[in-house]
Design a protein around this nucleic acid. Sequence first.
DNA 1: AATGAATGAGTATTCATTCAT
DNA 2: GATGAATGAATACTCATTCAT
Lengths: 217, 217, 217, 217
Amino acid sequence: MSIVSPSATKPVRNRRNPEVTRASILEAARAEFAEKGLEGGRVDQIARRAKANKQLVYYYFGSKDELYKSALEATYAEIRALERELDLTALPPREAMVRLIDFSLEYLDKHRDFIRMLSDENAHGARHVRGSEMALQTNSPLIALLSEALERGVREGIFRSDIDPLELYVSIAGMTFFYFANGLTLSAIFGRDLTQPRAVRSYRDHIVKLTLAGLGA
Amino acid sequence: MSIVSPSATKPVRNRRNPEVTRASILEAARAEFAEKGLEGGRVDQIARRAKANKQLVYYYFGSKDELYKSALEATYAEIRALERELDLTALPPREAMVRLIDFSLEYLDKHRDFIRMLSDENAHGARHVRGSEMALQTNSPLIALLSEALERGVREGIFRSDIDPLELYVSIAGMTFFYFANGLTLSAIFGRDLTQPRAVRSYRDHIVKLTLAGLGA
Amino acid sequence: MSIVSPSATKPVRNRRNPEVTRASILEAARAEFAEKGLEGGRVDQIARRAKANKQLVYYYFGSKDELYKSALEATYAEIRALERELDLTALPPREAMVRLIDFSLEYLDKHRDFIRMLSDENAHGARHVRGSEMALQTNSPLIALLSEALERGVREGIFRSDIDPLELYVSIAGMTFFYFANGLTLSAIFGRDLTQPRAVRSYRDHIVKLTLAGLGA
Amino acid sequence: MSIVSPSATKPVRNRRNPEVTRASILEAARAEFAEKGLEGGRVDQIARRAKANKQLVYYYFGSKDELYKSALEATYAEIRALERELDLTALPPREAMVRLIDFSLEYLDKHRDFIRMLSDENAHGARHVRGSEMALQTNSPLIALLSEALERGVREGIFRSDIDPLELYVSIAGMTFFYFANGLTLSAIFGRDLTQPRAVRSYRDHIVKLTLAGLGA
DNA sequence: AATGAATGAGTATTCATTCAT
DNA sequence: GATGAATGAATACTCATTCAT
């Protein structure tokens, strides 16, 4: 009566080595959480995306929450790596500032998933970030880069001297983040499609203008 | 075992005040969704908060999603009402701009729930806003106020003339929104408590400075 | 705060007299139960169909089950009335038999609701019929008519004499009822649309042929 | 407080026999749906009958509707298997016809559940049958058997030649099905217990008589 | 007679997680 | 390391019925 005959070998599919399995689960988790958020993301779906057994998710990550933390860390690691590649020190202060704005805009434009994860994390009281050694330790190199560019500008007499680098960072991040994070709502309410590339470019010019003039000595 | 004292009658609802019942459910929903988000909010909990029978939630609002939409609309209605009270036309251009920034900061500081709902709504593709006549129709009066102040500033020769009001609005909203929306994460990562009133005041000065200088002719 | 001002008169809509209200609820119930069955039928929907207040359903009928019984009785009363109009005594035995078959087929074809109610009632162990004085008392006049026609046929030597009228009734009812009751399934399985008028006519001829020959002396 | 005695182990399912688990759920579903119908059947109850966790029902069958479809298919498969065993070709035409009638009567008499499911399925527009590859493909072998017996009868000059096999099948099925399907109602209304074995035998003789005479050349 | 508001027990379904191998 | 089967607690939503006026 049994469909599976006793002699039938189990479909052993574990061709991949552990690291690959783990990595594919993590990747699947990032995609899932970025799309659906922490609550909306499904462990089942993550396993399916990773083409792995659901139990493996628990074997490697312990729980959904831990997995989320790992996904968050991976996301942070990625952006930090890109930030580290930004060589602002090679650029004159104004160009450095523009470069920073462009970097921020481009990254967010291309990585909407980052926006979702960041929003979600804050909605949950930054619980995972706080519990993450990694996220806390490797803080953004941008502040240092920004500080340095700011100082050079001040020294050259083109930037005002009463600007706090962290506050500047937050305001630039805010202007760029909010644009993409709330783009859909803004577009709906104001009847103007802010997701169009043209609109993005125009907004970029606006921020650059505002910031450079704002920093002007 | 009973929490209720023997003499306590069952919490018979106010049968003559359906509006009150409806309003209390809506209020409970706003609180619940603001705390837990759309997915995290529980209909059961909303009913309990409103001291209403769970079925009443459905009786009055049809579904969790509709209820969320109603909560969102109520939230929008509230902020719009406040915005309408902002009499920027009575102020000189610079003061008007400062007033706007202050309003934005103060509102967000006091209404963290608004932040959560806005983030959540965007995470869900602005689905409810798009489906809401009300949210779409009564769009923010701020843009008009901002336009007017901007124009006056330009006429007076104190503001530059190449600023788009909507883009300015978005950038100001971004700077303020992001600060509160991501305050917890930022605080954790940078090891500096941005939620302290002092920090908020300092950031406020920063934005004002940056914006006014940025708009300067 | 109240939307309804105290002075606003209640929308008194009870223009109709009680009998009309009761009748419209009953009619709505018949339609609803015929479509959805006892379990599938919704009291809410019945009230809406009848444009009556839901509570009125209870006021007039006591419970959903009682209402179902009433609907069933109304359905029976209707078909019995039609049966009583059948004047088989005026027809020669063979024609009487054909008339009976045609009546049965036509009624079922036009009143699919009757089929649903009868099936449903049986699925529930004929519970309502058993509890209905009316359904039990006014039993079908068809048996008497059939008996009489059968006897005449026997006397005339054209019908065999060993036929029990009730059994004949059941077999004719079966042949006609089953055709419509299970028409959809039969059509699906045999890939032949039995609901087409042509198919119905052909089947009618088949039954007539089979029955008359079957009864033949 | 615990109902379970300390020594009683939790009913740990047979982890090595998923087929058994699946089968027991299916069996429980057939029983439940046959008794209560599609709407009346409770998933909870099915799980309990099968001594399985409720979630397993979903694990194996996806939804109540799919489960119903599977139950329907199992029921069809069973009757088809029996039909295939009917060796009408070995019998003379008249005997073949009688055999068919007896088979039909006996099956329905013993499997009241089949009647309920068939009625219910039709009440739902044959939705599940239409969506079932299996039900559509393995259509009844009876039609072929019946055709063959009919033809032989015609060739032997004992059956009339203008009989359509499908229509004959439907009329026989109708006479038998209706008897059991509506037996309770008929018994109640006519005050004659048709469920008694004696009554069944008598009705059987009636159908045989009617059919054979009806088919007579 | 009529009405809208309120209730409680149910009902299918989902989901993170663990077991046994 | 890997797998499929199993579990329990939730969760949104429904429905017949009753209350108070």
